[in-house]
Write a protein that binds this DNA or RNA. Structure first.
Lengths: 353, 353
DNA sequence: GCGCGAAATCGAATCGATTCGACTACGCTA
DNA sequence: TAGCGTAGTCGAATCGATTCGATTTCGCGC
C-alpha cells in the first residue's frame, strides 16, 4: 500500500485499529459494544476513526459475518403504482413498519412480477412478508424455505411452512351479501379484483381459475348467498376498472339488471358508483353498492357501505410475527382478523318495480 | 464436518464445486456466466447444485466481494403512513421503480425520522434517493459522501455533492398566485406543508425557520405576489390538517377574511374545501381554493384548480440518474421539472362585496 | 505471599462468494 | 513441426468485518 492509496481507499476497521494501536478485534468490540473494553481504549479507537473519516463497519461485511442483514423484504403484487394506490397497502405497510420500528429494520420493496422475480430470490433479506400475493411466488417461497428465511404471508398463498395473517374474507363477504339480502335484493352483480396477475378483465364463471386468494375467497363468500350472481373481474384495484366492471354488469335488460353491486374493494366501489351515476341512476335507490376495505376516501361525496378491515393491525401483526420468527419463536398461525360491516348511504331497499 | 452437519448446514458454492468435481472458481463462473466454461462443466455444476438444493450464491457474500448490493435506498420524510398517503409519493416511487426496473434493483425504504436514523447510515445500499427530505438528513449525506454512495435528492436538500431533481416550486407558486390575482383576489391565506419534521402546526411568519425546502420555496413564491398573506403550517399533508389550517385562516372578521386560500398540496386543499363548506360558504364563489400537485382524487366532487406536477417523470429521472451515477456518469444537475396550471372550478372571481 | 477469577486484549479462523494470475491442452497457421 | 493464441480450469488472494479461544494483566481474598 502506497501513501497515495491511503487517500483513495476508504478506511477499514483494520486501518482504524492500526491508527489506534490496538488489534482489529478490540476495535470491533469498541464499535459494537459487545464485550469488555476499557474506556481509554474505546476513546482512542473512536478518535482514530474520526480522524480517518471511518463511519462504522461496512454493512456488507457485517451482514456476511453475522448472517443477518437487518432487512425485511416486502413482496407486493404487481407494480408499485397500483400497490400504493390502494390505501390498504400503505396502511398495512405502515403497520409493519411500526411493529418493526424499534429494531429499525429496513423494508425492501419487491414485486412478484416478471423482472423482479430475479431480484426476489437474490435479495439479502432476513425475512419476507408477502402482501396479498398470488401463487406466482410459490417458487420463491420454496427458495426461502431452503435458505431458512422466515416468510409471513398476509392474505397471500397458504402453505404449511409459512406464517399466515388472514382476514375473514369469505365470512365477511357472506355478511355483506346478507346485508343486501335483508334489504330485499335478489339480483346482484359482483365486481371482483384480479383473478390472476396479468389476466385481462372479463366475466368470472365458476370455472374461472383464481390464483389470488383474496379474490377467490371474497367471491366464494358472495356466492354462498347469491350463487348465480354474474361477476366481472378487473385488472387493477382502481375506480376506472370498477367503473368498467359496473358498466358491463349493468348493460343488460332493465328486467335483468342487478339492483345491487358487490365490489370486492372500495376503490372499485367508487368507480361502480361513478358508473351508476353516469347511467342516470341513483346510488342506494336504483342500485345499491357495497364495498370492501373500509378505507377513508378524502372528500368523497358518499358514505360507502362496506366491510371495514383492520389494515393497520394486520400489518402490525405481520411485523410482530417477523420479529418473533427472527427471535426463534414460531407464532401460532394463522393470525386471524375479522371485518365489520359499516352501513352507509350507498345501500338501500331493493326497488319494488 | 460430520455427516449430520451436511444435513443441517446450507450448501455453499464450495459444496457444489466438490460434488461436481470442479474448483470453486469454475463453479462460480458457471453460475455467474462471467468467463468461459464448457457446456459440459456448466451442466455438471448446475446438476450438482440442484441435487444439493443450492439456490445460487449468497447475496451477502456476493455483495461483500463485489462491493455492490443491488439495493437502492429511498429516504422518505416522516412515517410511511403519511408518506404514502400522498399519491405524489407513490407515483414518484413508481417512476423510480420503472426507471430502475430492468436491472431489478430493490428499493429499500428508509425514513429520516428519529429511530431510523441509525438504520439510514447502516444500510447496505449502492445509492440513495432522498424524496423531499429536510435538512435533518444532512449528516447522513456526509456519511454517504465519505462512502462514495451516490445521492440523488428529489426536492430535498441542496448540496454540491449530490445530484438534484427539482421542481419549479417557487415559479409555480408565483403562477398560482398570479392566477388568483388576475381574478381580483387581494386577501389570500396560505396553508403550508410542514416547516420542519416534528414541528407543530401554527402561524408562519417571515422569521419562521423552514427546514423543508418544498415548503419554503412554495411559500416564497406565493409571497412574491402576496407579501403579507397570513400562513398556517400543517404537520402532515392530509385533509384533516388542511381543514384545521383553513379554519384558522378563516376565523377572522368577515372584512379581513381571505377570499382565496393557497394550499401547498392538493391533500391540504381537500381539507380546505371541506372547512369552507362547513362554514356555509361556497367554494369558488365566496372563497377560492388553489392546490398544488395535480393528483387525481377518486370520486372527489370538485374539479380542483391546482399546479400539476410531473410526479412520475420526476421519479423516473431520479431512477435514471441513479443508474447513470452507478455507471460512472455524472448527470447534469439539477434536473429540472416544471408545473402547469390547471384551472378547475374551485377558483373564481373575488367577491365584490 | 499465593492463587484465582474477571477484565482487557490479541491473533487467527471464519462468513461465502468473486476474481486475478498462472497453468494446461488444444487447434491452427506458417 | 515448431510456435502461438485461446478456451478451460484451478489455486489463492481478497472483500471487511465478527467471534472464538488463548493469553496477559490486575485486583482481591485468605
Amino acid at each position: 500500500m502506497t501513501a497515495s492509496d491511503q487517500h483513495t481507499r476508504r478506511p477499514t476497521l483494520a486501518d482504524v485499529a492500526k491508527a489506534a494501536g490496538v488489534s482489529v478485534s478490540t476495535a470491533s468490540i469498541a464499535f459494537s459494544g459487545s464485550g469488555p473494553v476499557s474506556d481509554a481504549t474505546r476513546e482512542r479507537v473512536l478518535a482514530a476513526a474520526a480522524s480517518l473519516g471511518y463511519d462504522g463497519p461496512d454493512p456488507r461485511a457485517r451482514s456476511l459475518r453475522q448472517g443477518r442483514s437487518g432487512v425485511i423484504g416486502v413482496v407486493l403484487e404487481g407494480s408499485l403504482l397500483y400497490a400504493f394506490r390502494d390505501p390498504v397497502t400503505s396502511i398495512t405497510l405502515d403497520g409493519v413498519a411500526t411493529a418493526l420500528g424499534p429494531q429499525g429494520a429496513g423494508l425492501l420493496l419487491l414485486t412478484d412480477s416478471g423482472e423482479g422475480a430475479a431480484t426476489i430470490d437474490t435479495a439479502a433479506v432476513d425475512a419476507v412478508i408477502l402482501l396479498g400475493c398470488s401463487t406466482r411466488v410459490d417458487h420463491s417461497i420454496e427458495v426461502f424455505g431452503r435458505r431458512d428465511i422466515p416468510v409471513v404471508s398476509v392474505e397471500g398463498p397458504s402453505r404449511p411452512e409459512l406464517v399466515e395473517v388472514t382476514l375473514d374474507n369469505r365470512a365477511a363477504s357472506v355478511v355483506a351479501a346478507q346485508h343486501l339480502q335483508s334489504l330485499g335484493h335478489t339480483r346482484v352483480g359482483i365486481a371482483t379484483l384480479a383473478t390472476a396477475d396479468g389476466h385481462d378483465a372479463g366475466p368470472v364463471t365458476d370455472d374461472t381459475p383464481i390464483a389470488v386468494s383474496v379474490t377467490r375467497e371474497r367471491l366464494l363468500g358472495t356466492r354462498e348467498v347469491y350463487p348465480d350472481a354474474p361477476a366481472w373481474s378487473s385488472v387493477h384495484n382502481t375506480p376506472e376498472d370498477g367503473r368498467r366492471a359496473a358498466l358491463e354488469l349493468l348493460s343488460v335488460d332493465a328486467a335483468e339488471r342487478p339492483t345491487a353491486i358487490v365490489a370486492q374493494a372500495d376503490l372499485l366501489a367508487i368507480g361502480v358508483i361513478q358508473a351508476i351515476e353516469e347511467l342516470g341512476l341513483v346510488v342506494g335507490v336504483d342500485v345499491s353498492v357495497i364495498g370492501f376495505d373500509g378505507i377513508r376516501i378524502d372528500g368523497f361525496a358518499h358514505d360507502l357501505t362496506t366491510m371495514v378491515q383492520p389494515a393497520s393491525e394486520k400489518g402490525h401483526a405481520a411485523g410482530a410475527a417477523v420479529t418473533a420468527l427472527l427471535a426463534g419463536d414460531r407464532p401460532d398461525t394463522p393470525i386471524a382478523f375479522t371485518c365489520e360491516l359499516h352501513v352507509g348511504s350507498t345501500t338501500g331497499p331493493a326497488p319494488t318495480a
